[in-house]
């Protein structure tokens, strides 16, 4: 087998997806082939970086999901009334107030969409980004957009909107209904070609805020540490026995080794190391330790910008 063939094994090797025999064959080859070793390390590094990439911060999707579920074509409401005992009654949702606001929003959006009917197709591209539910949009004809409050189970009366609306094709004009929309207090701040409405759509949930606060520290993302010597080695780590307790661990190179730091929290290893001679209590800037395991080492750590003095960890 030549190097090129062996290198096709790198990917499953790193994921632990090679058979025991294939694995030992590959490792035997690696022991004698510096070129393949370099290639492997390069691949491990790339995958290590990918693994540690920050999770993107997600907006709260729930309001948008509800809004889209509410904007159903009239026939969907009928269909759902005929099937599925699992339809969720909207009055049981926690934020009932949002439902009322959504109703108003929905009414206004219907008004706006009707208003730009003529230019709809040609404006498709520029409006493309504004279509919030392309699926539904394509599933109903372009000539009318209908809203029912079937989903709201009779709450329409409370908000001043009619209980049900028929497609324009049926001859019923929207005029009377639009009167309500015009008098509504919802202000539409965007031009009529946009369907977006000035209702806070991206309210960050509390959970999201906490998350972003938490990420002040270096990536807290759980790095899945290999727990056996074979996968440890496959991912570029060193399997060893550490500390007084003689614990067996996989010691991995950190992704932020030597990065300048002023606190343990900034480092993947949770060890920001200052020169040994820096006296305890002195302000210090250190560099992140190069390995994930610090048990059994003696380091002068920097915490909160100050050196702790050389301490050994058992």
């Amino acid at each position: 087998m030549d190097c090129q063939t062996y290198q096709r094994w790198f990917s499953p090797y790193i994921d632990g997806a090679l058979s025991a025999e294939e694995r030992s064959q590959l490792e035997a080859h690696l022991a004698t082939c510096p070129r393949c070793q370099t290639e492997l390390v390069s691949l491990q590094r790339m995958l290590g970086t990918l693994k540690m990439m920050e999770q993107p911060h997600a907006p709260d999707l729930l309001p948008g999901v509800r809004r889209k579920l509410a904007r159903q074509p009239w026939w969907r409401g009928v269909l759902e009334r005929m099937t599925g005992p699992w339809r969720l009654p909207w009055h049981s949702f926690a934020l009932a107030g949002t439902a009322a606001v959504a109703l108003v929003a929905v009414g206004v959006s219907v008004y706006l969409q009707r208003g730009v009917q003529g230019g709809m197709k040609s404006n498709a591209d520029s409006m493309g980004q504004s279509f919030t539910n392309r699926e539904d949009w394509q599933s109903r004809s372009d000539s009318h957009t209908v809203v029912t409050n079937d989903a709201f189970q009779g709450r329409g009366d409370e908000s001043g909107f009619p209980a049900a609306e028929e497609p324009a094709g049926a001859g019923k004009s929207f005029g009377g209904n639009l009167g309500h929309a015009e008098k509504s207090e919802v202000r539409v701040s965007s031009p009529p070609t946009e369907v977006t409405i000035a209702i806070p759509q991206r309210q960050e949930s509390k959970e999201a805020e906490l998350d972003s606060d938490g990420s002040v520290l270096a990536k807290d993302k759980e790095r899945q540490v290999p727990n056996d010597s074979a996968s440890c080695k496959a991912q570029g780590g060193v399997w060893g026995t550490f500390g007084l307790a003689q614990v067996q661990l996989c010691n991995m190179p950190t992704s932020d080794a030597d990065k300048e730091c002023t606190d343990a929290g900034q480092c993947e290893s949770r060890a920001c190391v200052a020169p040994a001679e820096t006296a305890p209590g002195q302000p210090a800037t250190g560099r992140c330790h190069g390995w994930t395991v610090t048990v059994g080492t003696c380091l002068n750590r920097v915490i909160g910008g100050q050196a702790t003095g050389t301490l050994c960890e058992d």
Binding site: Q55, P56, A58, P59, D60, L61, L62, V65, P85, W86, R87, L88, P89, W90, S92, F93, A94, S205, E207
Partner: peptide, 27 residues
């Protein structure tokens, strides 16, 4: 619970999984 009509349960499912779904879509 959601299948039985519990709206709050569906809300919770959204909140639990929205980060992952969004991450996949963004990537």
């Amino acid at each position: 619970r959601a299948q039985g009509g519990d709206g709050a349960a569906f809300d919770l499912l959204v909140r639990r999984h929205q980060q992952i779904v969004f991450a996949v879509a963004l990537r």
